[in-house]
């Protein structure tokens, strides 16, 4: 039960794609910072299908992406959280792996 913490853009760093390779069934992914940008991309949306995803709200709002991501967010496997939620998640999962 790992929480994979991705902080970098999937377009400039392979952190997200590597993490997907080693993603376990009980794992989840937290997209923070530029990592959330990939949700705009249909190809990435497809690759992330079936994964448990969390999204840091402040990073989505700071980038003006709330409206753009509305469709992705309606999908049931993405949960928007704040830093308090991040803290709680870090304790619910057995560890946080920052890529």
């Amino acid at each position: 039960m790992n929480l994979h913490h991705i902080q970098t853009s999937a377009y400039t760093d392979n952190a997200l794609s590597l993490c997907l390779r080693y993603y376990g069934v009980d794992d989840a992914i937290l997209l923070a910072g530029d990592a959330i940008n990939c949700l705009l991309d249909v190809n990435w949306q497809t690759q992330l299908q079936g994964k448990t995803l969390y999204l840091l709200e402040s990073d989505m709002l700071s980038r003006g992406l709330k409206t753009k991501l509305e469709n992705s967010l309606n999908s049931s496997h993405i949960t928007v959280i704040d830093y308090a939620g991040f803290v709680s998640l870090s304790l619910q999962f057995s560890k946080v792996i920052t890529w």
Partner: peptide
């Protein structure tokens, strides 16, 4: 294999990348 590495990560207490 990816599955073995994934299993290894799960058994670790902490993972640093």
């Amino acid at each position: 294999s990816a599955a073995l590495i994934s299993h290894h990560l799960t058994l670790s207490d902490e993972v640093l990348v």
